[in-house]
Write a protein that binds this DNA or RNA. Structure first.
Lengths: 353, 353
DNA sequence: ATGAAAGCGCTAACAC
DNA sequence: GTGTTAGCGCTTTCAT
């Protein structure tokens, strides 16, 4: 097989049923061999309990014999729904979402669902486009990241009957169901933690504040709480571009050279924090005595660092599993819309604070 | 909308065309409003150059007016192909594949393709299942990781006319097209590098050798070359479970306590290597003088470490971009089957060796 | 418990 | 350039 250049585009004239030798078997073939109608075959495949064991056996044999595989598109078209779950994430590289994705997949793959994945690149317009094209597949459900959407996206999401889950964030007004945690409270928690640990002056290393509004919510919580517990506004640097360790190290160095009095820094994520930790080491600042560093995410190396990196553990996997659970119920129609699930987060103190 | 509990399952009797107030418009609606046939609408949408500008305008207006979105499943069923690309990776968490995925998406999303993603969990049987269910969607192409497949998977892949790409590995006999690099040669290159740097005794920290046969190929190249350039067989530890920094640190400590003469260690990936680096630091072994450490992957923190982590840079992104490029050609039918693209890798020496 | 028949919404010959 | 027509392969009433 494997039609190379000039594939033998055998497309018989309409009306003629001549197919090239080994065409993919259709349900009609199974029906014929089993001596029943396609309706019965369809039933046997989707609601076996409605078919007599005897007939069911014959059908199973025919299916086996032909190695029949149903054409999912035909089924989806006829029933107006497909065993597909659309998931839109803002980045495929960010390990946070990968873990959630894997958990969704684990929780749903068993039930025969496929994930259709879209990458919004943190752009609301791209998200809108993706939502439209995913809905065009009549997915069984659609999962989007965050609760902020363009007007058009909002309209599309409200208009459809497809179950929608907004994840990685909370809102009072979910489109359908929201599963996540409060990003803002993370900033609050870290600011308080620094206070408790006796820090005198806070710093912040951020990234993509104009695009990643969730990261921005964390920052806002951090700044507001800092002020409210008696600090002056934290010193701040923003990374140019994606948050990487190398950029984190550099930005951190800048921050410290501009504000040498800073003695506690929150980094927008662990990758950046790791860069800062290495840079502190190179600069000879002792951690946590002279300088405290905290990340966000609790990625696996955070526990392996020297000193261990204090960070905020996010329910990355829990979000995915919860989504799978809720979706199974929503799809089955057993669950009302409007649920908001706060899965929380945890400040993990290690050696760096 | 958002049918909660008792969705108003309005499913009109066959034959009747009464739809609840605001049903999704169909192509026939557009055709009627524009005063043309559905065939013309279809053309205007897919091959505008075949339709007169005038009519095209009317159709565009009607589409706009109804906010019509074509039902992709109907189109896919009728044309027997969908604008979907199936991609099967062994892990969603492994950042290697995420980058490739993102690159595939970038190269193809513009052309209107959607990614259907499957996770094989490094299991050949799971891969086989995924291949079958993805082919049932008549994807425009299917991308699988690696060149090793179960018998059933092999048969399915050879039988279909869907373009297939095997990635992250090379073979003399691709099913269709292979895009990757030689895993084995990585081990060879690192062993030689250690020799050049004057190492006396080699060590290896591996993981999942029973499942990740690509990692195993690297190991094999490393061991064979070690012997052939005059070393005794490298001392070895295998991580129990997934390769993480914490486990890497622990395994590395074990390795060194069992074989204190080892002075150069290859870790199966950078995450593990980072753990080893931290552990070496804790143990007070100077890197690279007393001990050389090399990882695989060149993840972003490798350049930020202190000392910088020597590692093997893999063409993660290049693979994805190449796949997109090749696929566009293959789908258009301009490219013959049988291509093998070696994208190479690069040993990046930093401070740790 | 099973079958007949009418679509699901679109595409693709082919004829004009 | 545009319309006609016959499906794509399955699901789903409805009748038996």
């Amino acid at each position: 097989m494997k039609g190379g250049k000039g594939a033998d585009g055998t497309k018989s004239a309409p009306g003629l049923r001549e197919r090239s030798g080994t065409a993919r078997p259709r349900m009609a073939d199974v029906a014929r061999i089993a001596g029943v109608s396609t309706a019965t075959v369809s039933r046997a495949l989707r609601q076996p309990e409605l078919v007599s064991p005897e007939v069911r056996g014959k059908i199973a044999a025919a299916v086996e014999h032909l190695s029949y595989r149903p054409n999912l598109m035909a089924g989806a078209l006829a029933s107006a729904r497909s065993k597909t779950i659309g998931v839109i994430i803002p980045s495929m590289i960010n390990a946070f979402f990968s873990v959630t994705l894997e958990a969704i997949e684990e929780g749903l793959a068993g039930a025969g669902y496929q994930l259709l994945i879209g990458n919004s690149h943190y752009e609301l317009e791209t998200e809108e486009r993706l939502i439209a094209s995913m809905l065009a597949w009549s997915p069984a459900a659609l999962v989007v990241t965050g609760c902020r959407h363009s007007r058009g996206a909002m309209r599309a999401l409200l208009d459809t009957d497809v179950p929608i889950v907004e994840m990685w964030e909370l809102t009072d007004n979910p489109i359908d169901t929201a599963i996540g945690f409060s990003q803002r409270d993370i900033g609050v928690a870290v600011a308080r933690h620094f206070k408790e640990r006796g820090a005198r002056r806070l710093g912040f290393v951020g990234a993509m504040h104009q695009r990643d509004y969730r990261a921005d919510a964390r920052r806002a919580g951090f700044f507001e709480t800092a002020l409210s517990v008696g600090y002056e506004a934290p010193a701040e640097v923003q990374l140019p571009g994606l948050p990487t360790s190398v950029r984190g190290a550099k930005a951190f160095a800048e921050l410290m050279s501009a504000h040498p009095d800073v003695d506690a820094v929150l980094c927008t994520n662990d990758i950046v924090a790791l860069g800062a930790l290495f840079e502190a080491q190179r600069l000879g600042w002792s951690v946590p005595e002279r300088l405290k560093i905290c990340g966000v995410g609790d990625v696996d190396f955070a526990a392996a660092c020297e000193p261990g990196l204090s960070t905020v553990s996010l329910p990355r996997r829990a979000i995915g599993l919860k989504i799978a659970e809720v979706l199974r119920e929503r799809i089955a129609g057993n669950l009302p819309t409007g649920g908001v699930h706060d899965l929380g987060f945890e400040l993990v103190r290690r050696g760096s604070t």
